[in-house]
Amino acid sequence: MVGVKLLGSWYSLFTKRVEWALKIKGVKYEFIEEDLQNKSPLLIQSNPIHKKVPVLIHNGKPICESMVIVEYIDETFEGLSILPEDPYDRAIARFWAKFLDDKWPAMIKSIFFKGEEQEKAKEEVYEMLKVLDNELKDKKFFVGDNFGFADIVANAVALWLGVFEEAFGVVLVTSEKFPNFCAWRDEYYTQNKKYLPSRDELISHYQTYIEAVAASK
Results as ranks from 00 to 15, higher is better:
K5D: 05
K217S: 14
I92D: 00
M128K: 07
D101T: 00
D145C: 07
N47I: 05
K122L: 03
E201W: 07
V153C: 05
R17L: 03
I63N: 03
K130D: 13
V27W: 09
Q191K: 14
A106I: 04
Y29P: 03
H58D: 09
Y206D: 13
H58C: 04
L83Y: 08
P84G: 01
L13A: 12
D151I: 12
E119W: 04
I203S: 03
E33Q: 10
W96M: 06
D186M: 13
D200R: 07
Y206W: 15
A158D: 11
V131W: 00
L129V: 04
I210H: 08
E19I: 02
E33D: 11
W184L: 05
A214C: 11
K120Y: 01
L43S: 07
W20R: 08
E187I: 10
R185T: 06
Q118W: 04
P54K: 11
F168P: 00
K25S: 08
F141G: 01
G115V: 09
K109D: 08
Q207N: 04
K98M: 14
L7T: 08
H205S: 09
A158N: 15
D86Q: 07
I44D: 06
M1H: 04
P84C: 01
I108T: 07
K140F: 09
K25L: 13
S46Y: 04
G148Q: 06
V55A: 11
T190A: 15
W104T: 12
K137R: 15
M128I: 06
F147G: 05
A156T: 12
E211F: 14
L80T: 11
A21Q: 03
Q191I: 04
L7F: 06
R94Y: 01
H205V: 13
D186F: 10
I32M: 10
F181H: 00
K16F: 03
D35M: 06
K16C: 11
I57Q: 06
S175P: 02
I44T: 10
I57E: 05
S66Q: 08
L172Q: 08
D145K: 10
T15Y: 06
G144E: 10
L161K: 05
A214Y: 13
S110W: 02
A21P: 00
K61A: 10
E211W: 12
Q37D: 11
F113T: 12
K177Q: 15
D74W: 03
K130N: 14
K28Q: 14
I108D: 03
L36F: 05
D86E: 12
Y195R: 06
K139S: 12
S175L: 05
D74I: 04
F142K: 08
A215N: 14
E71R: 02
D89Y: 01
G169P: 01
I49F: 08
M107N: 07
K51S: 13
K130E: 15
D133E: 02
Y195I: 07
T174D: 05
L80R: 13
E65Y: 06
F112W: 06
V18G: 00
A97N: 04
K177R: 15
D35L: 05
G144M: 10
S204L: 14
N59M: 09
A150C: 04
P62H: 11
W160P: 00
R185P: 01
Y209F: 15
H205T: 15
Y11H: 12
L196V: 10
H58A: 05
M1S: 09
K130H: 12
Y11R: 11
